[in-house]
Amino acid sequence: MFADTLPGDQGSAYVAAAYLFFLALLLVYLAIMGVRVARMRRELSELEQLTRERRDAPPASEQEPERLPT
């Protein structure tokens, strides 16, 4: 089926390059977004950890709030 529309045209490499570039760009973008989402997830679990520690600790109002390393 591919042979019907794909003759031995010299341009096919360029066509492939164009589509592949588009795909690569999209993948890079998604990878960057993935890293960002992963970072947010990590921050979120840090905060969860923090709330759990606070709940377990005695409710001491004079105690300094713990600080996370940033």
């Binding site: 591919f2 019907d4 529309t5 003759p7 045209d9 341009g11 096919s12 066509v15 164009a18 588009f22």
Partner: peptide
């Protein structure tokens, strides 16, 4: 879209297969 660009759309009379970039660009 890319599939029908590759398999369904006819070849352009003067540009041939190269015209397929049209559907992306």
């Amino acid at each position: 879209a890319f599939a029908i660009a590759a398999f369904y759309a006819p070849l352009d009379a003067d540009q041939g297969f190269r015209q397929k970039i049209f559907y992306l660009h």
